[in-house]
């Protein structure tokens, strides 16, 4: 019964919050978690928590200080231009499970990947186009982050 609750909850993403809240009110026998949750499912839950933890989250190859791919570098540079400094960056090259897991989690085949406010924004192309057409400034605004580019423009007027 317990595994059924979990299995059905898993289909509803984000499932992590849902079933954790449900557990205390449904008196079910305690079973070892590992028996029903595979490593891949654990990773999907971890990812759900990772993208919620910070307002801006990026999954890249390398680190912000040393990106290992031109596209990851482009994402870092765009964020830098907008003065976004407070973001979480995860290096997928450090962890094969993370690298595969995030592709499944986002249903997106490539790295880098950008999350804003727990929502998948897109990869490098989308971030670049949103940077070019001004949408990124608006997205950041919604988070209460004032883009450094807007700041610079206001000052020069």
């Amino acid at each position: 019964m317990n595994h059924l609750v979990r299995a059905s909850a898993r289909c509803l993403r984000p499932a992590s919050l849902l079933w954790r809240r449900a557990v205390p009110v449904v008196p079910v026998p305690v079973v070892p978690v590992g028996r029903f949750l595979s490593a891949a499912t654990d990773m999907q839950q971890t990812l759900g928590e990772m993208v919620k933890k910070d307002k801006v989250v990026v999954f890249i190859k390398g680190t912000p200080a040393q990106p290992m791919c031109g596209f990851s570098n482009a994402v870092i540079q765009i964020l830098r231009m907008h003065g976004v400094e407070d973001y979480a960056a995860y290096n997928v090259l450090d962890d094969q499970d993370l690298r595969q897991g995030i592709k499944e989690f986002s249903n997106w085949p490539t790295i880098p990947q950008v999350y804003i406010n727990s929502e998948f924004l897109g990869g490098c192309d989308i971030l670049l186009q949103m940077h070019q057409n001004g949408d990124l400034v608006e997205e950041l605004n919604k988070l209460g982050i004032r883009s450094a580019l807007v700041e610079a423009e206001t000052e020069s007027k």
Partner: peptide, 21 residues
Amino acid sequence: LLQRHRLVNGVLAEELKEVHA
């Protein structure tokens, strides 16, 4: 934009597994 890219990624799902970018 995101939906457009998802549409394309869907068509090329097999191919994108093979390429780097």
